[in-house]
Design a protein around this nucleic acid. Sequence first.
DNA 1: TCATAAATAGAAATGATTTCTATTTATACC
DNA 2: GGTATAAATAGAAATCATTTCTATTTATGA
Lengths: 143, 143
Amino acid sequence: MEPNTAYHALLKNLGLKVTPKRLALLSVLEEEHRYLSPEEVWKKLRRSFKSLGLPTVYRNMEELECHGVISKVLHSNRKLYYYFCPKTGHHHHFVCMECRIVEDLSVCAVREMEKEIKRQVNGTVTSHILQVNGLCGNCAEKL
Amino acid sequence: MEPNTAYHALLKNLGLKVTPKRLALLSVLEEEHRYLSPEEVWKKLRRSFKSLGLPTVYRNMEELECHGVISKVLHSNRKLYYYFCPKTGHHHHFVCMECRIVEDLSVCAVREMEKEIKRQVNGTVTSHILQVNGLCGNCAEKL
DNA sequence: TCATAAATAGAAATGATTTCTATTTATACC
DNA sequence: GGTATAAATAGAAATCATTTCTATTTATGA
Ligand SMILES: [Mn+2]
Ligand SMILES: [Mn+2]
Ligand SMILES: [Zn+2]
Ligand SMILES: [Zn+2]
């Protein structure tokens, strides 16, 4: 029941080979309650692996993201960050622009919930991003 | 009462010099009901200006954004897009991933509003991004 | 053990964005 | 209408996060 066993199963289920580096990457991500850039993860992992390519970290994080294991954080600096959230079910995140900590939110609406959010995180809400993506009527028709 | 007069005043009020390129840039942005990359705007503007540097377009769009005249669109491809929305007041946008059209939304909550949004845009909602930014308790205290 | 496809390292390329510097331009004032 | 001045700009170059490439290594299942 050590975490490694869980990661092992996780990778297996995704049809990915269970490599020491992948296990370590998952471990690093789960320990951090913050979103990290691939380079930051790479720096942490290099302590344990004498040889480790940065592209490997990029590739693995992208892979895990596309399988829904970790999620991208949209940052206004347009750099790549990922966060591993163990909580399941639809929810949103409060992300600190300063220390990059991530906290789960139980609310989904925003404007009318700002007070509630402030109480929950005991911090300051400076802004929020709400963008709805999809296909407009025209494009949905064509495709 | 031509648009140029309005842009002229707009730039003046921001303390920016009224250059032909800035006026043309604003014009291009207002005509499009879609979000555009600086390079796309540059290509459009080059029709009217024999010499026009791409950095000039980047600089001006950034300037306008920081003054709140246009807004950045967070795209999952992490490229830079801007959109000029004439509507005032707090509201959100529906952005098409295919043709990049932008439509104003009158709703602010999401999950419980998806049906309503679908009706409004007459298209398909594939995902939404809701991220709350701020400073966590610790960081808010320190700063 | 072995064959095989997947994963990886390390070097190199990419390309959007930014920086730099000399030149041009808008503007305020006369 | 000139003129001084700071702001804006062009064009070239640099940056640098991210991606691509290729030869080598590794995990896996038979
Ligand atoms: Mn979460
Ligand atoms: Mn709008
Ligand atoms: Zn913080
Ligand atoms: Zn569309």
